[in-house]
Amino acid sequence: MISVKKLLAIAIMSAISTTVVNAASNEALVKEGRKVFVTKKQGNCLACHAVQGDPSIPQTGDIGPKLANLDAYPKAYLFEKIWDPNKTVPNTLMPPMGRSHKITKHQIDALVAYLQATTKSK
């Protein structure tokens, strides 16, 4: 028989470890997102965007806006924006890299995680 106390302890432990795992995997996701952002054969987002809070990205272009305060947007909006920017801005110069299968859904999740973690509004 497991005591209530022990059960509680297990429950708490597992709750903590889930959080820990979540934090760790989010950190991995953020890291992956940055890589997608700066890698030419992946997102290549730096061709057009500078990123607030990440000045170490070299030689960003200025066709698109400097990405800032993106934690203010819902995740789904950012996902959509990257999946197919033509939906929000019909004539945009930004390529639909999700829709055209240049990057995967998972990579877009990673980009969103990276952008929200990095471009925090004050």
Binding site: A47, Q59, T60, G61, N86, P95, M97, K102
Partner: peptide
Amino acid sequence: GYLAISCNECHVKSAGKRIRAE
């Protein structure tokens, strides 16, 4: 192409901007 981008977008609309350092 998969970027769904045109000559016009880079060399008319974006002429006078930078794509990375170019």
